[in-house]
Simulated scan of single mutants.
Amino acid sequence: MSAIKSHDRKKFGISCDFGYFTEDNVIEVAHNALLKGEFLSAREAYEFVLEKYPDDFDALKGLILCDSEWKSIHPILHMSKVTIKEYTPSLTHALDNCRPEHKVYFTKIAELLRIKKEYKKEKSELKELEAQRASEQKILKSLLDRRKANRSKLSDVIRRIRAHKSSVGLSYLDISLAVFLLCTVVGTMILGRYVLIAAALVPLSAYVIYTVRKEIRDNLIETEIKPHADKISRLEEDYDSKIKEAQSVKEEYIRKAKSLIALDVEFSGSK
């Protein structure tokens, strides 16, 4: 069994004043500290082992757990609990110093961190697409409201006029129409049919002019609506596609994380 020479100092929360102690003893001290959440003490113990045995699997893995503040490797199954980065020194050190048979283990961790980074990028792009879509939808709603107001403008004006009542209980519109008809009848009796024709042409011309202007405004609004509607359609397609990509990345992460856990059990059982 490997032995590590002690130093006259206090480490790992215990006094190291005995002559020799085994590597397994220090790993056990580190593991117990890890389970208690004493990550600084655990780190000191793992580093102490690595001074003598730089390729020790448990110590290399332990430093990664200390950086992550995990008591075991199992939290890596949940992407949201992964806080370390792809180039964390403890992982880089493990990849550079581990034994060949353990390389696959630390490579899998590095690969999971890379996938997490990719997933984070996918989620960021999704948020950007959501923001763009929300902005375009706001503009489109404003244009649709303008179009609706333009199409119902005449009826709204008539409705508002009819809503105003005179002192005799009739709306001002009804009174105006009655006066107009009375003047038309009297004018026709005095001046003949030309007054009737003129009376018919005046409101008809006004209505035609109003309708043409309304149609022109409607077409202009439609011209503004189309590019925004098309852009929203493209953004929704991109969003749906990005959702599928993000889901695929997440599924890949879960699959590889489970593979790492199985490998961890295998390596732990082989000790």
Rank of each mutant, 00 (worst) to 15 (best):
A163G: 14
S259Y: 04
K231L: 15
L143S: 05
K52S: 08
F39G: 01
I14Y: 07
R43L: 05
K121E: 09
H228R: 10
R193N: 15
A30N: 00
N25G: 02
S171Y: 13
Y194P: 07
S155A: 11
I197N: 07
V168E: 15
K256Q: 14
L112Y: 14
A59C: 01
E136N: 07
E136W: 02
I161D: 05
V49A: 09
L40A: 11
S6K: 04
K214R: 13
S233H: 12
A134E: 05
L177R: 13
Y119R: 02
S41Q: 09
K11S: 12
V186H: 04
F18S: 07
S268H: 04
K71R: 14
D17Y: 09
K148L: 07
E224S: 13
E69R: 11
A134Y: 00
S248N: 09
P89K: 11
R147D: 07
K121Q: 03
D8Q: 15
L182R: 13
S41Y: 05
A42H: 02
S248V: 01
R193F: 15
Y253E: 04
E128L: 09
Y172R: 10
I232T: 06
I221A: 08
E38R: 14
Y253L: 01
A200R: 07
G19H: 00
E224C: 10
T188W: 08
K5E: 13
D55P: 06
R147E: 09
K116M: 08
A199L: 09
K153M: 06
Y105N: 06
E118G: 01
L95G: 00
R217C: 13
I197D: 02
M189T: 09
Y172N: 13
S155L: 07
M189P: 04
L50T: 00
V195M: 07
L34F: 03
S142N: 07
S270E: 01
Y207I: 15
L263P: 03
A198C: 08
E236I: 08
I14V: 14
R193C: 11
G19Y: 04
Y194L: 06
S68W: 05
A59E: 06
Y20T: 04
I175A: 11
I190Y: 15
Y20L: 00
S176H: 13
T184Q: 13
I115E: 05
L35V: 05
K36T: 01
L235R: 05
G13R: 04
Y105L: 06
T107D: 13
D8P: 06
F267R: 11
T22Y: 00
V168I: 15
V104M: 08
S90F: 11
E224Q: 15
S270M: 02
D55G: 08
D156F: 03
P203N: 11
I73G: 09
S90V: 11
L60P: 04
K123N: 10
D218E: 13
K36G: 01
M189R: 10
V186K: 12
L77F: 11
Y172I: 12
E101D: 10
S176E: 14
I243F: 00
D174K: 12
E222G: 15
R234Y: 01
I73A: 08
N25S: 06
Y194D: 09
R160E: 12
A134S: 10
I216R: 14
L40D: 12
E266S: 12
K256E: 10
S233C: 12
S268R: 12
K256P: 05
S155W: 07
L112W: 13
K10W: 14
D264T: 03
K127V: 01
D238I: 01
K258H: 11
G62A: 15
I64W: 00
D96A: 12
I4S: 01
S268F: 03
